[in-house]
C-alpha cells in the first residue's frame, strides 16, 4: 500500500504525523518505509533522529534518484541507524522501519519529464513488493511532486494507494484542505486529467486533523468560563464549516491531539515518552496507533 501525505499549507504537522503513523505501523508488526518527497526541505531524518541524514543525505537521495543521477536511492534502516537509544533496537515483533531520505540541499522539482515518472514508478513498484506500507511525504500545496505521484499511480493501476490530507483545525486550514482536494487544479482535477477516475480517486482521499485542542482537553482546565464557551462556539462553527467543505467527520480518518512534546520538538512519540519519562500524552500515542491501524482498515475507507 502506498500512502501519500499532503497538506495545503506548510507546517501543518504532515511530517510529524506521517512519521509517527509509520513508526506505529512498524510496531504493529508490519514492514514499513517512509519516503521523503518533500524535496524543498527534506527533514524526515531529523524526526527519526538519524542525524547523518537530518537534512537529507549528501549522496543517493531521492531527488538524485528521480533526476537519474544515481541508480538506486539510499535506504536508512532506522532501527540500526537512529541516534535515539529508544529507537536503536528493533522491538520484538516489530517490522522493518526504513527511511528513504531526500537529497541534502535539494530543491522542489521544477519540471516533470517522462523519465522522472518512469523512475518514480520503478521505485514505488519495488518498494510495494517488499513493504506493507510505504508513506510518501509529498510536501505542501500544489507542486510538481504531487503531479509526479498522480502521474506515477496512473501507470500502476493494480498497486493500491491512498491519500492523507493533513490540516489544522482552523478556518483557513479547513478551506485550504478542501481547495487542495476539490478546488480548481486540485488533486481531483489534476488526477482526472492524468487519467484517474475522479470518483475512485475521491474515495482514496481522507483528511487528518493535526494538533487538535478539544474543548474538554486537560490543557484547558485553567480557562475562564467565558473562554471555554468561546472555544466551544468556535469548535462547533468549524465543525459546521468542515461539513460544508467535505472535510467533515465522514471524510476524516482521524485526529491527533495537540501534544506538548510535538509543540516543542519534531520527533517520534515512543511508549517510553508516554510511560517512563511521561513527557508525552498517552492520548497522542494512542491516536497515532489508531491511525496506523485505520490506514489499512478497509472499513474506514468505504465509499463516502
Amino acid at each position: 500500500m502506498l500512502v501519500f501525505a499532503i497538506s495545503d499549507k506548510g507546517g501543518t504537522g504532515r511530517s510529524v504525523t506521517g512519521t509517527n503513523i509509520v513508526y506505529r505501523h512498524a510496531l504493529q508488526g508490519n514492514d514499513v518505509c517512509y519516503l521523503d518527497f518533500d524535496f524543498g526541505s527534506p527533514t524526515a531524518g531529523a524526526i527519526f533522529s538519524v542525524s547523518a541524514v537530518a537534512r537529507g543525505t549528501p549522496e543517493n537521495g531521492l531527488h538524485e534518484y528521480l533526476r537519474g543521477e544515481c541508480p538506486q536511492p539510499r535506504r536508512v534502516d532506522v532501527w540500526a541507524e537512529s541516534d535515539r537509544e529508544g529507537l536503536r533496537t528493533r522491538p520484538p515483533g516489530a517490522g522493518r522501519l526504513v527511511l528513504l531520505p531526500g537529497s541534502e540541499g535539494g530543491g522542489e522539482l521544477s519540471a516533470l519529464t517522462d523519465e522522472i515518472v518512469g523512475r518514480c514508478v520503478q521505485l514505488f513498484g519495488r518498494l510495494e513488493e517488499e513493504f506493507d506500507l510505504c508513506m510518501i511525504d509529498v510536501s505542501a500545496g500544489r507542486s510538481f511532486t504531487a503531479e509526479l505521484v498522480l502521474a506515477a499511480t496512473v501507470r500502476m493501476p493494480a498497486v493500491p494507494f491512498r491519500w492523507l490530507v493533513f490540516h489544522r483545525w482552523t478556518r483557513q486550514h479547513i478551506i485550504a484542505a478542501d481547495g487542495l482536494v476539490a478546488g480548481a487544479d486540485g488533486l481531483l482535477d489534476v488526477g482526472s486529467r492524468f487519467g484517474h477516475d475522479r470518483e475512485d480517486l475521491r474515495d482514496r482521499i481522507r483528511f487528518v486533523r493535526t494538533a487538535v485542542l478539544e474543548p474538554d482537553a486537560a490543557e484547558l482546565v485553567g480557562l475562564r468560563d467565558e473562554q471555554r464557551a468561546w472555544l466551544s462556539a468556535c469548535d462547533s462553527e468549524l465543525r459546521e464549516l468542515a461539513g460544508r467543505h467535505g472535510v467533515g467527520r465522514t471524510a476524516m480518518l482521524g485526529k491527533i491531539p495537540l501534544d506538548p512534546v510535538l509543540q516543542w520538538r519534531e520527533q517520534l512519540i515512543t511508549d517510553e515518552d508516554v510511560l517512563a519519562s511521561k513527557i508525552a500524552n498517552a492520548e497522542t500515542a494512542a491516536a497515532f496507533d489508531e491511525l496506523a491501524k485505520k490506514i489499512v482498515d478497509d472499513s474506514a475507507w468505504e465509499g463516502l
Partner: peptide
C-alpha cells in the same frame, strides 16, 4: 525518445529539473 532511434547521444536537456537549480 519514444518512437525514435539515433546513432549516438542527443543534446542533453538544458532546463534544470529542480527549483532554483
Amino acid at each position: 525518445e519514444t518512437g525514435w532511434l539515433c546513432n549516438g547521444s542527443r543534446s542533453p536537456r538544458t532546463a534544470p529539473l529542480q527549483a532554483m537549480g
